[in-house]
Nucleic acid binder design. Sequence first.
DNA 1: TTGCGTGCAAAGGTTTTGCATGGCA
DNA 2: TGCCATGCAAAACCTTTGCACGCAA
Lengths: 146, 146
Amino acid sequence: MADGGYRTKQKAEILDLIGEKGDYHFTAADIAEMLRKKGSGTGMSTVYRMLDKLTEEGTLRRYVIDGSSAACYQIAMADQNACRHHFHLKCLNCGSLFHVDCELIDKLTDHIATDHGFTVDHSKTVLYGYCEKCRTAENSDKGDLQ
Amino acid sequence: MADGGYRTKQKAEILDLIGEKGDYHFTAADIAEMLRKKGSGTGMSTVYRMLDKLTEEGTLRRYVIDGSSAACYQIAMADQNACRHHFHLKCLNCGSLFHVDCELIDKLTDHIATDHGFTVDHSKTVLYGYCEKCRTAENSDKGDLQ
DNA sequence: TTGCGTGCAAAGGTTTTGCATGGCA
DNA sequence: TGCCATGCAAAACCTTTGCACGCAA
């Protein structure tokens, strides 16, 4: 952890929880709640300050998913290349977020860059649609729960 | 305007201002300020309610650009059918929205549906990144101006 | 000891909601 | 006349900030 500052209990706890999340995304509130459940007295502002710092350092990545008000964080993959094959699918019905590794996205990215002169940033991009479970339900029930 | 409700002065004013923005994006606060400058007494909640409704109708598209706190809106020009083979590319730097027709999107869509069990809705999906003009600028100037 | 890190509470900004009133059809 | 639309203010939310205290180095 490229963390220049002091080593504190709170930092360790937060980093631990982030590690637990692994490849999965989380919000500041998620971390705060997990801390609370663990009996830690760590406050909201500390969580935000840590997440901010880690994001600036490049350890985390921050993104805002359309529709939700709170920002999501996720461990940043080591380098750009690792992230190139990674994209996010969000179900408009149940709200699930899927992480998919796929080489086809690479082709698409290259094509867009080459033929359309646009560099796609997959860390900021989310594909919206309907997951398998909700695919059928979509037709009958149009109630949006984002 | 596929607006099922009543025709009111406020609606007309807001739609007018949105029209003035043309292809360009704006926030709720932008609209509110423009209204204020025009001497309109239209309130914030009315603006939000209109933007919400127009977004639901598909007339507008809503984005949350990473880093900024307020949501952006922009006229969604094309209809569902036209958008099927259609990418939306939004530049994170200059805010331009590009519409790109490309057969590769079909391959990607099919692949995701078949192999990942997820139906992508392209009318709701925007790929974020940097356009040709901003691509070089991004490297030299890392200061985010969203 | 130095000064970063933390906790609490308050402030800030954006968006939503409740409720009474106003205006369109 | 019915019912949607509006305005205002308050609330809800997420996030940031100020300040005093605690703790790592």
